[in-house]
Amino acid sequence: MLEKLKGWARNFKKQIYILYLSYKDERVPWYAKVFTACVVAYAFSPIDLIPDFIPILGYLDDVIIVPLGVMFALKMLPDVVINDCTEKAEELLKKGKPKNWIIGSLIIVVWCLLLVWAMITIYNLLNG
């Protein structure tokens, strides 16, 4: 059972890399690029929609939401793009995780803005 789980995790990681590479491809429609970029950004983001310290619900996004996003994103991509990106993803897996500091910084800025907005909204609600 442990080997099945490890195999699933390796395959899932490869699928994330396939999506990462495919959103840069010109053959992918714009709506698929947007959805794919969101799925990849969320999968690589250290910040979760539901924090992991919340019992059971904390891992819901890791176990259900991200795999569903990956599945839908892969269905939006043309087969030829998936085949090309699969080969590139296998090479990337041998090298290590790609680093995109611009996207990473953008994710952090968006989360910080959301946090500030939430704090201001809560403050205004409490002080009415």
Rank of each mutant, 00 (worst) to 15 (best):
L21Y: 12
V28E: 03
L49I: 11
I102N: 03
L92S: 00
K33T: 00
D62Y: 15
K97Y: 12
L68H: 03
I122Q: 09
N127F: 13
V70W: 03
W30Q: 09
A118G: 12
L126K: 03
V81K: 01
P29M: 10
T86L: 12
I82Q: 03
V110T: 13
K88Q: 14
N127D: 08
W30P: 00
C112N: 03
G128S: 05
C112A: 14
F44I: 02
D52W: 11
K88A: 09
M71P: 01
A32G: 03
M119F: 15
M119A: 15
V116F: 11
I47F: 06
F44D: 02
L115F: 15
G128C: 01
P78T: 10
P55H: 06
I54E: 03
L115E: 00
M76N: 04
K95Q: 14
L92Q: 04
I120S: 03
L93V: 11
D84S: 07
I64Q: 04
A41Y: 07
A32Q: 09
C85I: 07
P51G: 10
V109N: 10
G58V: 00
D52K: 15
C38Q: 02
Y123S: 10
C112D: 09
C112M: 14
G128M: 12
A41G: 10
L74W: 07
K24G: 00
E26Q: 14
P98N: 08
I108E: 01
I122D: 04
C85D: 11
G128P: 03
L60N: 08
N83W: 14
M119V: 15
F44H: 05
V70L: 11
A118L: 11
Y31S: 05
F35H: 01
V110L: 13
I102V: 14
C85M: 14
L93A: 11
V28C: 02
G104D: 13
R27I: 00
V34N: 00
T36A: 12
F44Q: 11
T121H: 12
I102L: 12
V109A: 15
Y42T: 02
L126Y: 03
L106G: 11
Y31N: 05
G96W: 08
E90N: 10
L92E: 06
F53D: 03
V110G: 05
L49P: 01
S45F: 02
T86M: 08
A32F: 09
I108T: 14
E26S: 13
E90I: 11
S45W: 07
K75D: 01
K75E: 05
L126H: 05
I56M: 02
